[in-house]
Amino acid sequence: MLTALLSRLGQMVLVMFGISVVAFLIFFATPGADPSARIAGRNASQETLVQVRHDFGLDRPLPVQYALMMERLFISRDLTSFVNRGQRVVPTVLEAIPITLSLVLGAAVLWLLGGLIVGVIAGATRGTWLDRTLMILSLIGVSIPVFWLGEVANLVTQSRWHDSWLFSWVPPLGYIPFTEDPWGWFKALVIPWFTLATLYIGLYGRVLRASIIETMQEDFIRTARAKGIGERRVLMHHGLRTSLVAFVTMFGLDFGALVGGGALLTEVVFGLQGVGKLTYGALQTLDLPMILATVIYASFFVVMANFIVDVAFVFIDPRVRDAH
């Protein structure tokens, strides 16, 4: 177990190293991306450019630059942005993490619950009007663009009906730290949670339904029915329990991607200064230190999520447990 864990950690470091190198190289290979020109500003003289290059270490060989940047990112942690002079990259990312985590964790709770309920009910009532209604609703949920849904939610709760009793509780856009005001934190996030979760509830509901319907055709379901344990138990304890494998895989990957910055649109619409927004801004301004920091952070979460999925499998599926 320990060796498996260690080799897994080693893999993780390797993947993150690879991703950071690729991000670094893409940056330097991008035409017109000479950072010294951006840093120095438009119409800067040749001497200024040389000066800037030297100041930021951009005249050193690439491997040295990479190593320097990693050193300042991980060890001295004083890497500063190329764009917003003096802005320290590491603290900026660290500040954004709780915002993204709050958003994604809350939405994940909603979509797991919603996906389970929709999937199980639709799977169990296959072919009935209830099943059809749920599937149409989830198809709509999957198709609605998240930024549009967010804008509509904002329109309704922030302006149109903000003064009505229904939505007067909604705080202005932005994040309220949990440590400062837990209730405010909740109120500020509950609409973004639902907005982000809508797509995934639809997606997970549909996938789980399909998976349950497939599982319920299996031989072991017939065995379970022949035992006289009741259809509800057959469904939950045998059908759903066996169907969870696909569900968990999807969840791990989606969760990792969202925490890694995939919740960008939701963050932008609701004015949440999360990692997604940070990455987006850094990419637009080609702010290499910030890009490297956010990309490494994102890869960490994606790899981490994979790891957690694998561990979860060990609990969910005994066949995987023995395969190690």
Binding site: E218, T223, A224
Partner: peptide
């Protein structure tokens, strides 16, 4: 078929 008659996760 005993290979498929038992629920694999219990």
């Amino acid at each position: 078929d005993p290979m498929t008659a038992l629920t694999p996760v219990h």
